[in-house]
Amino acid sequence: MLDASGDGYITEDGRKIGGVVMEMRNITLRFGGVVAIKNISFDIREGEIRAIIGPNGAGKSSMLNVISGFYVPQEGEVWFRGEKRPPMKPYEVARQGIARTFQNIALFEGMSVLDNVMTGRLTHMKTGLMAQAIWKGKAEEEETANREVVEKIIDFLEIQHIRKTPVSRLPYGLKKRVELARALAAEPKLLLLDEPMAGMNVEEKEDMSRFILDVNDEFGTTIALIEHDMGVVMDLSDRVVVMDYGKKIGDGTPDEVRNNQEVIDAYLGVAHD
């Protein structure tokens, strides 16, 4: 089934996966004495849903933070769209077309849902300050175009009814959805989701799963996500990286990693040597 050697592969459900978009090579990340990531390599391919799983403290969020530029690894290389990426600030990574959500939700609490999602368009706003002041028409044109994209995403994620609501008033599950909307507004080439379903009830999880699949399906967005719920991971993802204590202990299709002895041991809490 899995043909990583050639240029892409066909998934079980018949979707065509393309070439490598993002490649991590021998990444090592330390915090003082703690080694959060130990010499890990893996890739993410065009159009796929790639999951990163592992027990608490395994280094999953750290890996996502390396990809999005929030953490700078001590060793290793990050390759994006065929080019080695120099050390970058998070905003530079975002401008390259990599959008993300956070494990602990980072929204603009003082703004409405619409304004929050609108900030996702900032990387697409070109007109300079002077032009905005002088040439009103151009700026308005751009604003209208951005609004259209945003409204489409708001409809897509079924949050029209709370467009004008201040984010601080929303329940947790909806906040997660708004955060996804903001990331999607950037029309990212790669979307990073850190535990998009954490703390949700079953119904909310089902909704979120459906949205993730739809995003991937309709926009063709490449997605890397971290998730604890194994059922969800098995349903959503095409390929899975398994981490434990900063090391990669498995990489493959959901079926492959499920039958991997080391993975089973990690999840059953077998003592480490």
């Binding site: 929030f70 905003y91 993300r100 956070f102 003082g110 007109t127 300050l129 905005q132 990331a183 950037a186």
Partner: peptide, 26 residues
């Protein structure tokens, strides 16, 4: 309210981490 830089300024005032993630140079 209406300029790109102004929006970015409000975003930074609200949440640094979120601002970075939407591509704002703090």
């Amino acid at each position: 309210q209406y300029t790109k830089q102004g929006r970015a300024m409000r975003a930074v005032a609200d949440d640094h981490q979120a601002a970075l993630s939407v591509g704002i140079d703090l």
